[in-house]
């Protein structure tokens, strides 16, 4: 595993010296110890099967993205009549009633972030092969990791509305199947970003440099 460490990892990296950063407690130690002497987590030079796992999670998210957007997330029954909301339907409703800031927040959190996140993950996977723009791509990785959780806001809205209107009466609210697919998309993209190892980009960049010179 360490035989080709000088070629597989970039020359300035800890990995090229056989040193691994503990993913749990951030201690740097020799990878031969297998387990971090401080916290006991297993040591790896790079996250194992990082690209494969990232792609698998992202692919599952792409597939579920379709029902997440086609199926209703919320069913609302009022005296004025019953109606269903998809994610985009909710945004349009806020927009039409003049709540532009809320419409914008939901649009960004529920529509734009999941799509941008999936594109970002695709771009990261490509750059882990090509090693292009390592600094910018590493920044993209950090943004991707940070923003994902905010997409969960629509799922919380469903949970809160269902809870607060539980007595029934004139108004009743039920979750729709879209909510489950949507929550699954968000969790899967969080897993996808979490399994990606940005250090692969720097390894690829270093391989490129050696080949060029």
């Amino acid at each position: 595993m360490n035989a080709d460490s000088s070629t597989a990892y970039d020359r300035d990296s800890a990995a090229s010296k056989g040193l691994a950063l503990c993913h749990s407690c951030n201690r740097v130690d020799r990878v031969e110890s297998h387990h971090c002497p401080r916290c006991g987590a297993s040591l790896h030079l790079r996250k194992p099967d990082s690209l494969e796992r990232t792609i698998a999670y992202a692919a599952a998210a792409v597939i579920l993205y379709i029902p997440a957007n086609l199926l209703p997330v919320l069913r609302l029954e009022a005296v004025t009549g019953a109606h269903q909301n998809t994610i985009v339907g909710g945004v349009i409703e806020f927009w039409q009633s003049g709540d532009y800031p809320v419409a914008a927040i939901i649009f960004v959190a529920s529509v734009m972030i999941p799509i941008l996140k999936l594109f970002a993950i695709a771009a990261l996977c490509v750059s882990a092969r090509t090693g292009r723009f390592p600094r910018a791509m590493t920044r993209l990785y950090r943004i991707t990791e940070f923003i994902g959780r905010w997409s969960m806001v629509d799922v919380f809205v469903v949970a809160i509305l269902v809870a607060v209107v539980q007595l029934g009466g004139v108004l009743s609210i039920h979750p729709g199947p879209g909510a489950i697919s949507f929550a699954a998309v968000v969790v899967l993209t969080i897993f996808a970003a979490g399994s990606f190892d940005p250090r692969l980009i720097w390894d690829a960049a270093a391989r490129h440099e050696t080949r060029a010179s």
Binding site: S13, A14, L19, V28, P198
Partner: peptide, 9 residues
């Protein structure tokens, strides 16, 4: 110290 994002040592 090793960087968790780029592994610089």
């Amino acid at each position: 110290l090793a960087c968790h994002d780029c592994d610089a040592l």
